[in-house]
Each structure stands twice: as C-alpha cells, then as structure tokens.
Design a protein around this nucleic acid. Sequence first.
DNA 1: CGGCTGTATCGACATCCGTCGATACAGCAT
DNA 2: ATGCTGTATCGACGGATGTCGATACAGCCG
Lengths: 125, 125
Amino acid sequence: MSKQADLPVLGQDEACCAPMVREPLGEVDAAELSRMFKALSDPIRLRLLSLIASHEGGEACVCDLTGPFDVSQPTISHHLKVLREAGLVGSERRGTWVYYWVLPEALGRLSALLETPAVPAKASA
Amino acid sequence: MSKQADLPVLGQDEACCAPMVREPLGEVDAAELSRMFKALSDPIRLRLLSLIASHEGGEACVCDLTGPFDVSQPTISHHLKVLREAGLVGSERRGTWVYYWVLPEALGRLSALLETPAVPAKASA
DNA sequence: CGGCTGTATCGACATCCGTCGATACAGCAT
DNA sequence: ATGCTGTATCGACGGATGTCGATACAGCCG
C-alpha cells in the first residue's frame, strides 16, 4: 500500500478519497459520502450550489438566491440548510444579509471519488 | 464487445460538464444531474458501485454483490436497478448470472462537475 | 422607539424512498 | 420434463423529504 505524503489536490485521508474504482468503500465512508451526495440529489440544491460557486467573489447573499426559483423563501432557506449541514457550503451573517460560499475541499473530495482513472477493460497490472 | 470509444477522459460537451464553479447550472441539466446524484445518495448504492468498479475485470455478478450487505436480495436488486436507470452502470445477463459494470463516462461527468479549480481565496495567502 | 426588510424556524401535509416477504421469471442440471 | 439456483418484479408499509403558510428572529433606518 502506497502512502502519498503530499498530494497536490485534496489530500484528506486515503481511507475514503481514492477513486471508488480502486477499492470498495467501507460502511462508514459510504454513509458519510452518501449524505453529501444526498444533498446534491435535488435539482434546486444543485442549482443553488452552482449559483453560489459561480457567483462573483465566490459567495452569494441569500437575496441573490431566492429570485431564480419558483419555490418559496422558506424552501430556499431549507435547501441552504441541507447544503450547509452536508458540509458543502459555509455561511455567515454580515449585517442584514447572510452569505453562503462553497467549501471546495468537500466538492473536491467527491470529485476525486468519482474520478475514473482510464477507460475500462484496459487493465494496468 | 465494448462500445467504448477511445475517449480517455470525460470530454462530453461543455453545456453541463464544466465545473459548476464556472457557471450556474440550467434547470434541465440540474434535473438530469440531480437524478444521477440521487442514485449515489444511498450508502448501499455507493458501496455497490464501488464494489462493481473495483471488482476484477471491471464487472461483477449480482452473486458477488448480495453477500456483503445485510439487506435482502430484492433490495439489492432494487438498488442495482436504480443505478442502472440513472445511467451509472450497465448490465447484461450471461447464462445464469447477471453482470454489472460501471459506465465511466457518467462518473467522469459528475466528477468534472464537482471539480474545484483551485483552493479558496482565503486559505492561500 | 416603532416599523421595515431579510432570513430562519415551525408545524402540517402529500409524496417519495428503502425495505421486506411472496412470487414470477430465466437458465442450467439431472 | 422437473427441479433447482440466481435474479427481477410486485404489493405493502413505515419513515424520510420537499413544500407551503404562518411566524419568529436579526439588524437597519426613520
């Protein structure tokens, strides 16, 4: 087993962050990761996340996020809470407004997990 | 018989597959992507997927997949169906057994979407 | 101070989802 | 053919989830 000391991207711990193509996920890791994916499993939350991530300055006020959707303000607030509790975004009140930003470490962890090393059937011995 | 072209990594189209950090997701893309993430939002499905992906030969028989879990065989079959209908795995009956394999293009698409271009502005001085 | 705007929480409701046992279906072996 | 094993489908049930309106909380401004 090779231990990589200084991986350039998302060096978390190797327990759960190697591409799932390499080794089966343990129960504990699967539970935690599934919670994050569940937060991404709603189209509104996905759009919220992308709105936040792509917003100028890397953060967005809730007031920027309620407009584009057809659902009520409490519903948006609920979805933002889900994203926050999944560890995908951070938030902070600044005066009247509340700002949300993406936590790139979390996204990167999921991204790395889903990475496909190469085309299949081309086994590297 | 792999219908896999020689596309090495997730070249898709940039409409939905650029990192979501770059531009907000459209409603249609968000709907489709959220369906895939929903398939990943269950710990058993996540473990199933990693078992399949990491299995020797890149594919696994259902008989290899029912053992590691505490749930019934119909439940496993249901989860495999969800993964298949989300476009994350393919399957084929070969005599008595049914084999499942991962569709790397789909995983790569999700991975690319979650890619974070760099560390956040605050962290690196 | 009182009122106004922005955001979160609460309680209720309909729908969706994971799970099961029972059962149907597919293919091999005898 | 008959039975046996592997897998999928069905119907049901309990719990989770998305949504709303009503309301509470936080901070600005007159």
